[in-house]
Write a protein that binds this DNA or RNA. Structure first.
Lengths: 146, 146
DNA sequence: AGATTAATAGGAATAGTTACTATTACCAAA
DNA sequence: TTTGGTAATAGTAACTATTCCTATTAATCT
């Protein structure tokens, strides 16, 4: 008897909010957003539902190097860029390069299933801030938003 | 007055052990290894030294997606493969593809500094185990070592 | 030698995440 | 409609990886 997945109010709202964002919030950010509509929701419920939604392929779980998990309402396979200044994560509008998977043929005995490519750099905002720092030598420019 | 970096016994042994390995141990694994030679070393010391050694470029800190940090005695810039079965991480003996960094030119307004490429697949050992599973339908093959 | 300061061991604290528990909500069969 | 089974929930405790704190020890510099 296969278990039935119920689309509860909480789950529906988490999904809705995530689909309506182009950012890639962390579990805690999702919690804060959803709490505006469901003030009594618990953080555990958010985690569980993010897990279930990503298991069933309705959202994507982004496990990026060195930081906490982020969640993406866009389920298409795509790369991401991360800003080294403020930590924001953006989608990259290029086709995944499937030929990369075969780059290791004959080099190593793994059977490659996929690859994960993350670009690291500075977003426009942080580039601007860095120029400001260089000009004014004021470090606090960088300390404001995370 | 610049602070002096002391090469203490603990630091030296951590470095030695790491250089003598082709695996990519976690901080805790390094701790267990080093403890055989320095039974009184503390985990905090291991963490601090791994941090310092990677800051000074003597080792490499690998922040891989979705798992804990790993450390690499090989300081050359290289890619890694991760086994989806057992979690082991191996070096990839191909040259980093620097042209990847310019793949986003004109696509997005980030200033790209570098990229991180991780291959995901199954190591020879796990491929073998999986064949065993397919043949015998015994799931416990996979449950032994992590 | 004495002063200075890096590094240490040991343990407390933190952050992100997962697990547990009692309760509630939903559906289906009687 | 009740009743039984199970999914999901809120709230909280537990866990894990990592960082921070503190008193002490040990190099290095005058």
């Amino acid at each position: 008897m296969a278990s039935v997945l119920r689309m509860t109010e909480q789950r529906k709202i988490i999904l809705e909010e995530l689909r309506g964002l182009c950012t890639h919030p962390t579990a805690n950010e999702v919690y804060e957003i959803v709490r505006k509509r469901l003030p009594r929701i618990s953080l555990g419920t958010v985690y569980r539902n993010l897990e279930i939604l990503s298991e069933t392929g309705m959202i994507q779980k982004l496990e990026m190097a060195g930081t906490q998990k982020r969640f993406d309402g866009n389920t298409e396979n795509h790369y991401h860029v991360r800003c080294l200044g403020c930590g924001r994560v953006d989608d990259v509008a290029i086709e995944p390069i499937s030929s990369i998977d075969s780059a290791l043929d004959g080099v190593i005995d793994y059977r490659i299933v996929w690859h994960r490519l993350e670009f690291m750099g500075f977003c426009p905002k942080c580039q601007f801030k860095m120029n400001g720092v260089l000009k004014s030598n004021r470090k606090d420019y960088l300390d404001n938003d995370h």
